[in-house]
């Protein structure tokens, strides 16, 4: 983006999310996974990035996923309950 002094659009870095949305949010879905959106890193205990193919991810919290740390929908089969 061409930066024009005084142009409101030039105040944020090109790749940065809008200011009011900076950071990440985690939504705990009832009976389901943790949905993580926004600006975050998912790493192993040594700090190395885990394979990640999408911006928003669902993290397993029932313990039964075959794709951990991601959710694969198995919580529905095992009748996992959590509120929220």
């Amino acid at each position: 983006m061409t930066r024009i002094p005084g142009d409101a659009r030039s105040q944020a870095d090109d790749d940065a999310p809008p200011l009011e949305e900076a950071g990440a949010s985690i939504v705990a879905f009832p009976d389901g996974p943790l949905l993580v959106r926004g600006d975050f890193e998912l790493v192993d205990p040594d700090g190395a990035a885990l394979p990640r193919r999408r911006k928003t991810v669902a993290l397993c919290r029932c313990g039964a996923s075959g794709l951990k740390p991601y959710c694969d929908g198995t919580h529905k089969q095992i009748g996992f309950k959590a509120t929220p």
Binding site: A58, Y70, D72
Partner: peptide, 16 residues
């Protein structure tokens, strides 16, 4: 394989 992971995300967003 992509759909296993993607739709586990999508179904939550889609429903709620």
């Amino acid at each position: 394989d992509e759909h296993v992971e993607a739709d586990a995300v999508h179904e939550q967003i889609a429903a709620r």
